[in-house]
Design a protein around this nucleic acid. Structure first.
Lengths: 235, 235
DNA sequence: CGAGTAAGTGTGTCTGAGCAACTAAGCTAG
DNA sequence: CTAGCTTAGTTGCTCAGACACACTTACTCG
């Protein structure tokens, strides 16, 4: 091939980061990894979102790269994975002009309980932040992810992806309440969830502490379903 | 600084592309540029979205890069500009692994009528496509942009950014109808636009073909406003 | 001067949110 | 064994708001 001068442009560093959410201990949590302590690394020892450089040889595309990083840290292979956005600037990485493609993933609790990478740990999301100070601009990315999750919950049934394969309506409502951080009205919630047509009843029932409850599962058709209105808390 | 071996990873090509929309001749149009005819270029002579490599030396961040490319092609400096997503894979560019950060912009008609770059031209959006076959995966990006625009129109008042500084309600409704490609109900449209609180009346009136109409303008506070429901066509 | 057209307003209907009451089923403590 | 507590799920009522349609007003043009 003839020479292509514009390819000699200096290229930005290209990374992919994944904001991995799960409900654990009745709280919204996010998975973070600790950066290596080597002095040659930026932000040594700091907590950061799981991510890293795109592997030109191994990654077919950006989403495959995000899925790989998720699998490396959690072992989970096919969760809900959605592109969040990209952040790129001259200053966000001390090593030079860099751009990251951010994804966010929703894991059911049972999957989140599996074997974790040694450097990974779950942290509770408090407001739109997390306790430790994050490396790079990852606090900003996390904030965007939480906002996106909360805003999509208002008009889709995304949190169903945080549930185990079979769940009861009260359990699903509890998950919505944890994500939204506000109480929801039982009757309206039921009406809307059934109208959304994203979940279907399973024949079996679950024996709860008081009485058996109907089990539901996610329907195969995974189109996000939009609600007509937002619900409001009682009182 | 000590050596940082991971920085020797081969880096993907990094570009920014902008999907620029405007209403022209009563239709939704998008700005395309023709790729150079040199045989050394990929897709010589084909139409493509305006875009190109990130300039590490000149661009502060991705959005500044997108704004620069928009200004280069249209002369417009501060339109509505929103990140759309990113597309990256080993195969989308014949020159190698590449990732593009896509933005979409909304231009008012009067701004879109200004001086265009020599290689740029407006094309009507038909469905979610455009007549000429596009270079790279730009058809896919364009499709995503149209879908995003249409879906956001359902619950925000984005199309107001396609209007001149002052406009009448029927003109605004016409713009909504062009973007959504379906008729809207006059009364409901009025109620919702006023409730959205994104536009405010101007003292003056415009003389129309039959009677003078109230002029409105965009409010300074540019927060996107969400509607409770979608409107439906009459009949 | 009358018909046509477009801007803007009024109105009845219907859906769904919010709230509370109520039933039913199982657990638990005495 | 039983009474009372807890929770799943249902029902009914009220109210607000959005929608569809129809009406009024005002201007133009022939």
């Amino acid at each position: 091939m003839p020479e292509k001068p514009e390819l000699d442009f200096p290229r930005p560093l290209t990374t992919v980061d994944v904001v991995i959410f799960a409900i654990r201990s009745d709280a919204l949590q996010v998975l973070l990894v600790q950066r290596p302590r080597a002095e040659t690394e930026p932000f040594p020892g700091a907590w950061a979102l799981p991510g890293g450089f795109v592997d030109i040889a191994g990654d077919r595309d950006l989403e495959a790269c995000a899925a790989r990083k998720l699998k490396d840290k959690t072992g989970v292979v096919s969760p809900y994975l959605e592109q969040l956005g990209s952040w790129g600037s001259a200053t966000r990485d001390p090593r030079g002009w860099s751009a990251t493609h951010a994804y966010f993933a929703l894991l059911p609790e049972h999957a989140a309980g599996g074997t974790l990478a040694a450097d990974a740990q779950w942290f509770a999301v408090e407001g739109e932040k997390v306790r430790p100070k994050l490396a790079f601009d990852h606090a900003e990315i996390l904030q965007a992810a939480v906002q996106r999750l909360r805003s999509k919950v208002e008009y889709t049934s995304l949190p169903a992806y945080l549930m185990p394969p079979e769940f009861t309506l009260p359990e699903l409502q509890r998950t919505f309440e944890i994500v939204l951080d506000r109480p929801l009205e039982k009757s309206a919630f039921r009406t809307r969830m059934l109208a959304a047509d994203l979940i279907e009843p399973v024949a079996r029932m679950r024996r709860g502490p008081n009485r058996p409850a109907q089990l539901y599962r996610l329907k195969k058709a995974r189109a996000p379903v939009f609600f007509a209105r937002t619900f409001n808390p009682p009182g």
